[in-house]
């Protein structure tokens, strides 16, 4: 009897793993397809798509697409630009939004509830609706640069950073987290003589690890993966272009699909690295917000 039960158990385990592997494969197919295709000449790539060969590194395999892609576009520059913009935006956003959330949660100023709900209401406005008004604005705003005051922010890094710093979702995440921190901790710090800034820096922020990770991850993915429309309209010069706009280099007269796949593989590397390093925080953050990346 015992042996039968054990067999049964083993079988069940095997089935479970099989299902998990299948599901994992389904999710990995696009990624595998991208990597495999990046090694094939465009003609073979297109003919392979009709069979399972699409997922197998067979036939005329080489790194030629990568070489061609790097010849065609300054990929290193684009990746650097995206990482730089992402880093600066995420840091500034975490700082500013957590400060705002701190004020909404702990400082009892008149109307803070209303202001917070207005900010949260902006979550439902798609960016496309405000892109043009925002463009008119940033094309005239002053900026203190190397050569004194200049007007117009077009073709810069900051035009791709500043509009994304204030972020309702990030404020919301922090507000939710701060509300759950024990109120007595804040009060104890106040009674101990701490100023609001000291409370923010020495009590609230050190306890905010989980929400900082969540907000940083969600924001990073958004900044790195999804910046297309805005840079397309505010950045004409190559020097400040991010990766998603760089994709356009490969969609000219004849689409070189092999090079597209090579380009996509290269720009995916930083995200994968980021994911592997922060895997645990990643899973926790997606689970905690119920927001899918």
């Amino acid at each position: 009897m015992a042996i039968v039960t054990q067999d049964n158990h083993g079988l069940r385990l095997a089935v479970r793993y099989l299902v998990l592997i299948l599901v994992a494969l389904v999710f990995m197919f696009p990624l595998v397809f991208m990597l495999v295709s990046s090694l094939k000449p465009t003609a073979q790539l297109l003919s392979d798509t009709s069979s399972l060969r699409a997922f197998l590194p067979v036939g005329d395999i080489s790194l030629e697409n990568y070489a061609a892609a790097f010849r065609r576009a300054p990929i290193g520059l684009f990746v650097f630009n995206s990482i730089f913009i992402t880093l600066v935006t995420v840091c500034a956003s975490l700082f500013l939004c957590s400060l705002a959330a701190f004020s909404f949660t702990y400082l009892n100023w008149k109307g803070n509830g209303i202001v917070l709900s207005v900010i949260l209401a902006t979550l439902i406005i798609p960016f496309e609706t405000i892109a043009i008004p925002l463009l008119l604005w940033v094309s005239r705003l002053p900026w203190v640069g190397m050569e004194g005051i200049e007007f117009g922010w077009l073709n810069t890094y900051h035009v791709q950073i500043v509009p994304w710093i204030a972020d309702a979702l990030t404020v919301f995440l922090f507000v939710q987290f701060f509300k759950d921190l024990p109120r007595e901790l804040i009060e104890a710090a106040r009674a101990e003589g701490a100023s609001w800034w000291q409370i923010y820096r020495r009590v609230v922020m050190p306890l905010s690890g989980p929400v900082l990770a969540t907000a940083a991850i969600l924001k990073s993915l958004k900044m790195y993966n999804e910046q297309y429309l805005w840079p397309l309209i505010v950045v004409q010069d190559e020097a400040h272009r991010p990766i998603m706009v760089g994709l356009g280099y490969f969609f000219q007269l004849n689409v070189a699909w092999g090079e597209v796949m090579a380009y996509l593989s290269v720009i995916t590397i930083p995200v994968l690295a980021f994911y592997l390093v922060l895997q645990r925080a990643f899973i926790a953050s997606i689970a905690s917000t119920g927001v899918k990346g």
């Binding site: 007595e184 009060e187 104890a188 710090a189 106040r190 101990e192 003589g193 701490a194 050190p206």
Partner: peptide, 28 residues
Amino acid sequence: PKDRGIAMVFQTYAIFPHMSVRENVAFG
């Protein structure tokens, strides 16, 4: 509160979880 010369002890202790006892005691 910080300028009233008071100190308060709470029912829930309200000690800072991210600091050692020494740092907690010396917080003020």
